[in-house]
Simulated scan of single mutants.
Amino acid sequence: MKLPRSLRTTVAPALLALTALAALTACGTSEADSGGKGSGSGSTVAVRIPDPGNSGVLALGKKDGSLDKALAKAGAKVKWTGSAGPFAPAAQAMNADQLDIATGSITSGITSLAQRPGFKFFTAVAPDAAGEGILVRNGSGIGSVADLVGKKVAVNQGGTGEYLLLKALAKAGIPADKVNRVYLRPDQTAAVFNAGKVDAWAVWATYAVAEIGSGKAHFVADGAAIGSDNYSLNAVRTEFAEQHPKVVKALYRYLHEAGAKEKRNPAAYLNVFTDVGPTAVTGKAKAVQIEFTAQGGTVEPIGPQDTERFKAVAAFYAEQKVTKAEVDVAAHLLDVGKLT
């Protein structure tokens, strides 16, 4: 998904994107290396995916080799590239032919689609009703969304955080300008939040788990209460999908099947490589993560109902002036069931 210059200053999006993009593509490969354009029919296609870290379906797939085994049936293998992070720089990496697959939310996806996208979405996971929301410190005196009026709320600009806050305010009938949005990268925000320099944090499970697990914070409104339509999506570089549809379909099948297994047994997908250190999920945070995962959705094809909800998010973003106009999300979707 550094310390902020100021709580009232928006960190320059271009600089942040370039910094994250540099980290994401530090191990990037050329098209020839990736087995993309110009690859012979007998060669193995390398699928460039951000390294998954220590938890989740891709982490376990990397460790036990099951992902490469599944992709081998389609003549492909994984080339782990950089590390997973915010979707905006990942979208730039796909546009620059440095990455083939990335994961992000529909909210961050819409802001990236408002540029010149070189990618399409091919899977969807239903909004996380339990694991995202407006986080407040215990004892803060904030007991409802209405109590956020006049307060400072940390959000990631144009992504999940800003969407959750705006959606919560709209549902409560509170004008957006009654709350002070503080634009921060998610990986900057925990220290600021815990120091009391912001009053709340609109955030998702990746960062919320540690805060809730500490016993010092809770959601004043979660995704269900907010009415969030914040789907998690997998994106593929457009040219890659056109050249290697069987590989994309094989990846979908793996993600779908492995995701169903993770939902049934979340603990098996935590601390895949190590159970100590900063990437490990331990103590109460581990229990929180297991609970969120068990309640979450699984990777599915994008259907008509999903597309309508994406359209509603795009319209909301335009209405809230997050984007200059309503983004046509439907033009950037793949029907994975029709890939051959």
Rank of each mutant, 00 (worst) to 15 (best):
K73L: 04
I134S: 03
V136W: 01
F119P: 10
V125H: 02
D100W: 11
D64H: 00
S55P: 01
G133K: 07
A91N: 04
G82K: 15
R116V: 14
P117C: 13
L67N: 02
A146P: 08
K120P: 02
A76Y: 06
R137V: 06
D128F: 08
D68V: 02
T123Y: 13
T81H: 09
L113H: 04
S83Q: 13
L71V: 12
A102L: 05
Q92F: 11
S144D: 00
G141Y: 13
A70N: 04
A146S: 10
L67Y: 01
G104Q: 09
N138M: 13
W80C: 07
K79R: 15
A126L: 02
P89A: 07
D51R: 14
P50M: 04
S112R: 02
N138R: 15
K62C: 05
I110V: 12
W80T: 10
A76K: 11
D68N: 13
G139I: 04
V136S: 09
I110D: 02
S108R: 08
G75L: 09
G143H: 15
T111D: 00
G118T: 13
A146K: 15
V57A: 07
N54I: 07
A124Q: 04
A74R: 12
L67S: 06
G61R: 06
A93F: 09
T123W: 11
A88R: 06
L113G: 01
V78S: 04
F121C: 01
S140Q: 03
V57K: 03
S66M: 03
I134Q: 08
R137M: 05
K77L: 05
S55G: 10
G104N: 05
L58F: 14
K77V: 06
V125I: 13
T123A: 14
P86G: 14
D97A: 15
S55W: 06
G65P: 01
T107N: 08
I49M: 07
G133L: 03
S66E: 06
V145G: 10
D128W: 03
G118D: 11
I110Q: 04
P50S: 13
S108Y: 06
M94G: 10
T107D: 05
P89I: 05
G56A: 10
K69Q: 12
A96D: 15
A96L: 08
S108L: 02
I106L: 11
T111R: 02
K73R: 10
N138H: 14
Q115W: 03
A124K: 03
A129S: 11
V78Q: 05
N95P: 05
A76L: 10
N54E: 00
A88V: 14
N138I: 14
T103M: 01
I110W: 04
R137H: 03
G133W: 05
L135A: 13
S55K: 07
